[in-house]
Nucleic acid binder design. Structure first.
Lengths: 99, 99
DNA sequence: CGGCATCCCCCACGATACTG
DNA sequence: CAGTATCGTGGGGGATGCCG
């Protein structure tokens, strides 16, 4: 049985610490700063649950979802061509080593 | 009558200074550095005409053209939503001013 | 003309410590 | 837990000068 209370997160909401876990190498400070600027730009929304300790949930807004969609195309391009770019880089390395 | 010699640029080739003119605010140094990294990644090709003074032509490779296409979607998103983002920013400004 | 080399400044970011 | 505050630094990038 699934129980949902007022304290539960919506399926598309993510808490601060969970975001940090999902992005290894991103410092707490940069996560905080970046989330603030994203919220300021209306790309993410922030919901604070007034408990002790507080829980904060982030989610993409409609605008944020539309950017995610636009970014998907670029991500696909990167995945398809990363190897080719690496080869070009390696070729340059070899030329510099020889010449 | 149109005359084409060996010294002419192909239609899709652009010279260094012309690129600079097309990108106001981009310093000569950053243009040079960026072109080098793009060439290294195989996104642009570089053709030097051995005259005095030399003329250097840049053009997008096939890979570069494919990235340009992938970027077009993102550019469209930006043009469509820039105003909305500015409004979100202004709204935040007003909230901070009020209190 | 089309750079590269040098100097220099600034700030983006990490590390650490503290707090409601 | 979810941040802010503070300090220190690496390197991104501008300005200038030189060169083939």
């Amino acid at each position: 049985m699934v129980v949902r209370t007022l304290a539960d997160a919506a399926p598309d909401e993510v808490r601060f610490a969970e975001l940090g876990r999902r992005m290894p190498g991103v410092s707490q400070k940069m996560l905080s700063v970046t989330l603030r600027s994203l919220a300021r730009d209306g790309l993410v929304s922030r919901r604070v649950e007034p408990t002790v300790p507080p829980r904060v949930f982030y989610r993409l807004t409609g605008l944020g979802l539309s950017l995610e969609a636009a970014l998907a195309g670029l991500r696909t391009w990167a995945e398809e061509h990363m190897a080719e770019i690496d080869r070009a880089n390696d070729a340059t390395d070899r030329e510099l080593a020889e010449g």
